[in-house]
Design a binder for these strands. Structure first.
Lengths: 225, 225
DNA sequence: AGGAAAGCAAGAGCACTGCTCTCGTTATGG
DNA sequence: CCATAACGAGAGCAGTGCTCTTGCTTTCCT
């Protein structure tokens, strides 16, 4: 019976629960969480977990994809505001808040790659959501004429960006694509620096303010203000 | 006999060799390198390694300190040029080159922190060499009048930076300290993004050019050009 | 309805890990 | 010269990822 399949439903629930427990372990053990410990927490034999994830790496991959989607969705929902600059600042703050709320998930996707782990193709889509969102906000602003001129870029990398610009937003200046990607890099770099302890003893009180300062710098280089 | 002590000399050599072998393993296993494997490579029992490092974490700490000093020294030696901007660009390129030559050492010090590992106090000194170097280059430029005005900073974090500025470089505007730290964050973020695969499929040919573009952006926000 | 096939959970087992403890050996220093 | 400290090796403990076998249950097809 059951066109949906009872077993399939149970399987989906189990899969989800394993991921949930694994996410909890992520907070204490980071990327080298123990599959056996996860199984123990669920009251099942470690070998049973392998029915759901072929290896620890596959579990990690699932967590990585979920994390990318989670932060991507958060950013998309936060990209609101009267003008494009407000949307940009809002979304970057949302990403930072997401990272602060769960530093280990952030480390999982934006920290150093797990040794020996090779990210499969399934992760590239979710991984690009935030940068594409930034690019979209910038593109809209540009088409509305809200982007001031900045120095054009030259050199080989300018041609690479010209190709990207032509594909995603014909007519947009290549330097705008470069500045957008640079803004994304600044954002993730600022968050990682804060989370990974690089700011200790210099900015301890108002890290949010310093983050916004940096994002406004990135916004200026894009062409806002 | 031996005022220096034969045993002490041998011990120092052994310590250094263990670190060297461990650094090799770092390239394949990352931060969760195997102490036993290191011992095996050296033809000794794993328990013997504990005569030199009380734990795996202590070995990692030694590697971390060495890495900080190595990149710091590299940056210091590269901070040459006719003007301060040239020195800044040169040192950032040197840091990037250092990271590209040994990504795993970079990940060790600027990547996600090893779970359960708490960096001891010995690491903070070496860890600050690069940022202090940048601050020094900027300070010199400011005192020579080579730094253009930029928008002042406000808010609570501005007071924090004012305190830092007063201590390190009395008279220097707080926003300059903020911009210097931001430049450092941009640098490490740009390198990490490149090394950790965040730039795939957008900048594949001329990553050096894109890096310099970003560093020139940071330089502009400091007040160069 | 009945039987084959597939899914599932558990346990034992392998090779590995960090780390501790004990045991002989060797160099150091009073 | 001899007690002491440093040293290397080995065994052992508890843990790891992963595989394989064994029994049971659900699903699917004829």
């Amino acid at each position: 019976m059951s066109a949906s399949g009872v077993r399939a439903r149970v399987r989906a629930e189990m899969t989800e629960e394993i991921k949930a427990v694994a996410r909890r372990h992520l907070a204490t053990d980071g990327a080298n969480l123990s599959l056996r410990a996860v199984a123990r927490d669920m009251g099942m034999a470690s070998s049973a977990v392998y029915r759901y994830f072929a290896s620890r790496d596959e579990l990690l991959t699932a967590l990585i994809i979920d994390a990318y989607n989670s932060v991507g969705e958060t950013a998309e929902n936060a990209a609101t505001g009267d003008n494009a600059l407000a949307r940009f600042l809002s979304l970057t703050h949302a990403v930072r808040d997401w990272a602060l709320a769960d530093p280990h998930q952030w480390a999982l996707i934006y920290g150093s790659p797990v040794p020996g782990y090779q990210a499969p193709q399934d992760t590239v889509g979710p991984a690009t959501r935030v940068i594409l969102l930034i690019a979209d906000v910038v593109k809209t602003a540009y088409e509305n004429g809200d982007i001031a001129d900045r120095r054009p870029i030259t050199g080989r990398f300018a041609e690479e960006f010209a190709a990207v610009a032509e594909r995603y937003s014909p007519g947009a200046p290549p330097r705008l694509v470069a500045a957008s990607l640079s803004a994304f890099v600044q954002m993730s770099g600022a968050i990682s620096a804060e989370l990974f302890g690089q700011l200790s003893n210099s900015v301890d009180e108002d890290r949010r303010g310093f983050f916004e300062y940096q994002m406004r710098g990135a916004a200026y280089l894009i062409g806002w203000e």
